[in-house]
Every structure is written in structure tokens, then in C-alpha cells.
Simulated scan of single mutants.
Amino acid sequence: MDNTKKKNILIVHNYYQIPGGEDTVVANEKKMLEKHEHKVILYSRNNAELKQMSKRQKIFLPITTVFNPRTYREIKKLIKQGNIDVVHVHNTLNLVSPAVYYAARRMKVPVVQTIHNFRLLCPGATFYRDGHICEDCVEHGLRCAVKHSCYRGSKIQTLACVLSTTFHRITGIYGKINYICLTDFNRKKLLELKQIKPERVFVKPNFIESKNECISENDRKDQFVFAGRLDKLKGIDFLFEAWKRMGEGAPKLIVCGTGPMEEWCKSFIRQNDVNIEMLGFVPNGEALKIIANSRALVLPTQWYEGFPMSIVEAFSVGTPVICSDLGNAGSIVEEGITGAKFIADDIEEIIFAVRRCRGMCKKAFNEYQKKYTEKINYRQLVAIYKGCTYE
């Protein structure tokens, strides 16, 4: 393969019925590659198609989820017609299927798969169930997922995911493709699947392009921000309890977001004398302005997370992050440099972290400029494409 020319890239993505962060990453990377004069083709399916399927198609869905012949044919055709150098896959569930890997292999083109979640090891993709971190499928086998109905609360749908993952582990395909993990923590977890070779696993975070500046700490308001879903998974109950225990001298906590615990949050504020202001849904741009004028963003997550873009957004305006020392969030934030970390479910630790998070604004902004700009991300992605191997 000629590494001196701009590589032709085939991006493959299966959209979920509800839009999410993965879709944004696909759009951003496609735009970035095109801006640098790469030929980019997007092959996509959308799970909204499931609603339009005939009964016959739905009967065969468990089979096509494992291997979709249509994907196999269409990917081979696109590789040939587009003179593709690298196939970059983001999501294959449910309609694309891992057939994309076999098609690229047949055409002798390297594949790189971005790991947005933990699905290769956990059918539920989160390593979380029943209110706690769960790695049973790694320790005791994928059958544990079926027992607990980990995918969408359905034993049948979970079984389909398990059969697919098991089949492709047996064929050895997971050991023949390349991977982009978003954090070192992700990479470490992925390598627990022993057939994957360490030299095939690269680390490249997501990026945002920002022209924001860093407001000095002295010019910021004495306030902290939570921006996200009001959900037990996000640790909102621990955060509110911490603010209650801080008492009268607590700084203001601004809460941007909605979710299943919204009424609980409002009731908590009514019943306790706490310095918490709930703003409900706040558009991303407005939320970023609030974060830029605050002392820190607080992320008390109770699970490993995927890649919390809120952390990078906070760094882009020079705002440090206080977060659980858990999973990907804990991997991104550096204690005493870009924020403060605490034991996920320890309320006193949250309070201590809030009180010691000072003097880090410039360092957080420097972290953004060093790791999370489009310019740096493009260099990393091109280097990964160059390092991808077929054999």
C-alpha cells in the first residue's frame, strides 16, 4: 500500500434508533478527513429500519445480526469501486453485523474498529447491572448476560448478542482486525479478550474543535456544575447528599439536565436547605458558558462510562473536573493537574475533592490544547491508519 498518498477511507456505522454520541464522532471524523482531502465513503444502516421490516425479515434477524450477507456483498463492492485503503468501523449492531470484517478481509483491506463501549466483553456494553459494576461475563463467561437479561432487559435479545459474539470469537476474526480505544482504561479492558494482540490496539481520544478561551480562576463565580442525565447511574444522589452535608457554607451547585431522577432531585431540594439550582434542559452552548464561568465540573459517575465528552468540553474552556476515580472518567482526569478524583460512592470524599479543587484552570486548558484538538486528532488518526495491519 502506498503510504505517501492520502488514504481512501470507508467509514462504516450502524445508527441506533435514538441518536447518540457515536453518531457525532462519525460525523466529526468524516468531516475532518474530508477537510484534509481524503476520499471518504460512508456506509451506514439505521436501526429505525427494524420498524419497517416484514415478519419474514424479523424471523431471520437473529441470523443477520450475526452475519448479514447484504453487508458482505455491499462492502466488497464499495471497497473495489472506491479503491479503499482502510475500512474504519464504528458500530455494527444490529443491521450491519460483523460481516463487514469478513468482507474487508476477503478484499485484503485492513480494518480498524473504534471501541465506543464494552460490547465485545459485555453484551450489555456497560459492565453495569442492578446498581453496581459487573464483570461477570469476563470472569465466568457470556452465559451470565443471558441469566440477567443484560441487553435491553430481554433474554432472547441478549442470547442473540451472546451467540454473535461467541461465533466471531470462535472464527478468530477479533484477533485479525485493529482497534482504536478512546482511553488507556478502554485498551486495558479490551485486551482482556486474549485473542486480541496488543500491537493492534491504538489509543486515540475523541476531539472537539473550540475557539473558547480560558477565564482566569479569579474571574469565575463560586459555583460548580453538574451537566448530564439525572440518573442513579450518574451518581446524582451522592452529589446532592454531599452538598447537603457541606451545610451553610457550601458553594452553589448548578444542575443542567433532565432524567428519571428529576422529581427526586426537586423533592430533595425542597426538603433540605441546600445551595442547589436546577436549570432543567440547557442547550450545549449555554451549558458550556456556565461551565466556563464555574470553578469545576462535577461528574460523580457510578459506572465506567464510554468517553465523557463533557470532560473534554470542560477542559476546552479551562474548567477542571471533579470525578469518580472509576473507569474512563478516572483515566482522563489527572489528580491535582486537571481536577480532583474521589472514591465513587464515598460522600465525604466528594466533599474533600470539591474543597481541594483550586488553581487548575490553566492546566486544564493546556490539557485540551495538548490532547483534544482537531489538529492533534488528525495526526493521531493518520498514524493509526498507517500502522493498521491486514495480516
Rank of each mutant, 00 (worst) to 15 (best):
Asp2Phe: 11
Ile9Leu: 03
His13Met: 07
Gln17Tyr: 10
Gly21Tyr: 12
Thr24Asn: 11
His36Gly: 09
Arg45Pro: 10
Asn47Ile: 09
Asn47Pro: 06
Leu50Phe: 07
Lys55Leu: 14
Pro62Gly: 08
Pro62Gln: 09
Thr65Ala: 02
Arg70Met: 07
Tyr72Pro: 00
Lys76Ile: 04
Ile79Glu: 04
Lys80Trp: 00
Gln81Tyr: 03
Gly82Phe: 02
Asp85Glu: 05
Leu93Cys: 04
Pro98Val: 10
Tyr102Cys: 03
Ala103Pro: 11
Ala104Ile: 08
Arg105Val: 05
Arg106Gly: 08
Val109Lys: 08
Val112Ile: 15
Arg119Tyr: 01
Thr126Leu: 00
Tyr128Arg: 01
Tyr128Gly: 01
Tyr128Cys: 01
Arg129Lys: 04
Gly131Ser: 10
Asp136Tyr: 01
Asp136Phe: 02
Cys137Asn: 01
Gly141Thr: 02
Gly141Leu: 01
Ala145Glu: 00
Arg152His: 07
Arg152Leu: 13
Gly153Arg: 00
Gly153Ala: 01
Leu159Ala: 15
Leu159Tyr: 07
Cys161Pro: 02
Leu163Gln: 08
Leu163Met: 12
Ile170Ser: 07
Ile180Phe: 08
Lys189Glu: 02
Leu190Gln: 05
Leu190Tyr: 13
Pro198Val: 07
Phe202Leu: 15
Asn212Tyr: 11
Glu213Arg: 08
Glu213Ala: 02
Asp219Pro: 06
Val225Pro: 01
Gly228Pro: 10
Asp231Val: 15
Arg245Ile: 07
Gly249Phe: 07
Val255Leu: 12
Gly257Val: 13
Gly259His: 13
Met261Lys: 13
Cys265Leu: 14
Ser267Tyr: 10
Asp273Tyr: 02
Val274Leu: 11
Asn275His: 04
Met278Gly: 05
Gly280Val: 01
Ile290Glu: 03
Ile290Met: 05
Ala292Arg: 09
Ala296His: 03
Leu297Thr: 15
Thr301Asn: 10
Thr301Ala: 08
Ile311Cys: 08
Thr319Met: 14
Ser324Met: 02
Gly327Glu: 12
Asn328Ala: 12
Asn328Ile: 09
Ser331His: 05
Gly336Gln: 06
Lys341Gly: 01
Lys341Arg: 00
Asp345Ile: 04
Asp346Cys: 06
Phe352Tyr: 11
Phe352Asp: 15
Gly359Val: 12
Cys361Ser: 14
Tyr368Cys: 04
Lys371Gln: 15
Lys371Glu: 12
Gln380Leu: 13
Leu381Trp: 00
Ala383Gln: 15
Lys386Ser: 15
